[in-house]
């Protein structure tokens, strides 16, 4: 018997479920659909084939295909008597969703913003579906590549947990503290603010919504088996961004910046930077410790005047770096 490839089995299952108006029962699927029927034992034990079908359903749903389970009216929750189908109207892209060549080019550019990890994979599949429409693309975007990176290891597992509404726990090193604390969180949104990824979610211990910087999650993100939560109200990502914006607006640093220096080039182009009467600059920020790290990198090109806490933080960082590198090396 020639083995049937995974994609052939999945493709055949989608075709069979799309073609059936009333849906198919599990026994019918396992005994007749290509890829299952070859392994089906009439009147025998089909437990492993059954498990295969359960995994395949998940894989198909992950592609956004609306594979529905219809319970038998007299036996709710019984998977053996349930029927499965893919309603055509929910499967097909609505007829009025069309894209022009210019829009198509823009979507290609949007997909290319993500170069690695799960967002890149999701984008790539979306573009495959988009190409199905046969739209010609403008070539105007050649040689132009805006992109955002996802460098934090926590992003992948958090995105998965967000999509599956799965509670997670992780060690979090809160800015300004020396020891990380274990946090248990329902992830509600992942947002980029000031080029940094943040998780907003419900902190179970604090019993309140909290925002976490992904770069400060130390150690692995662990999904808590069996603990799921209800979807937050729509607009969680927008609310999270608004909150970060509020924090950013409220924090102001006063800096002296050496004219024409690299620090000047980098900091003065930021949004919300304004000069003061005394030749200094006011700069908004979200996280004091992260800004302190960044300003330390500019060495003598930046002098922090206020707030005092930021001034002390930058100064101690510079002393630490110069101290660490003071002697001739130990390698």
């Amino acid at each position: 018997m020639v083995a049937v490839s995974v994609e052939e089995r999945l493709f055949s299952l989608v075709l069979a479920l799309l073609a059936s108006e009333q849906g198919l029962g599990k026994a019918e699927i396992l005994s007749t659909v290509q890829g299952y029927r070859q392994r089906y034992v009439l009147g025998g034990d089909n437990a492993s084939l059954d498990r295969q079908f359960e995994r395949d359903k998940d894989d198909i749903r992950e592609l956004g295909i609306p594979l529905e389970t219809i319970d038998a009216p007299d036996r709710p929750g019984d998977s053996q008597s349930a029927r499965y189908r893919i309603p055509r109207a929910l499967y097909e892209l609505p007829a009025d969703v069309t894209f022009s060549a210019a829009e198509n080019a823009l979507l290609g550019l949007a997909a290319a913003v993500w170069r690695d990890g799960s967002l890149s994979e999701d984008s790539r599949r979306a573009i495959t579906k988009l190409r199905s429409l046969g739209i010609e693309t403008d070539d105007a975007v050649i040689g132009y590549a805006p992109r955002l990176r996802v460098r934090e290891a926590a992003f992948g597992p958090l995105k998965l947990a967000l999509d599956r509404r799965q509670r997670v726990s992780f060690l979090y090193l809160k800015p300004g503290q020396k020891k990380p604390l274990l946090r248990t969180v329902d992830p509600h949104a992942l947002v980029v603010h000031e080029s940094r990824w943040h998780l907003s979610g419900f902190d179970k211990r604090a019993r309140a919504p909290r925002t976490f910087l992904l770069s400060r999650i130390v150690g692995p993100v662990k999904p808590l088996p069996g603990e799921t939560f209800d979807a937050p109200a729509a607009g969680a990502a927008e609310r999270s961004l608004a909150e970060l914006q509020r924090v950013w607006q409220g924090n102001v640093a006063v800096l002296g910046i050496v004219a024409g220096s690299d620090a000047g080039l980098r900091l003065l182009k930021r949004s919300g930077v304004s000069p003061t009467d005394s030749g200094r600059y006011e700069l908004h920020f979200t996280d004091l410790d992260i800004l302190a790290d960044e300003l330390a990198g500019f060495g003598p090109e930046v002098l922090v005047h206020a707030p005092a806490e930021l001034r002390a933080a930058v100064r101690s960082r510079l002393l630490q770096v110069s101290g660490t590198h003071q002697d001739g090396g130990n390698a």
Binding site: L63, P94, A110, A112, L119, K129, S132
Partner: peptide, 14 residues
Amino acid sequence: PRFSAREAAALIAG
């Protein structure tokens, strides 16, 4: 086929 929730989200964020 329609986009999945994740696919649409990745393009929208992009």
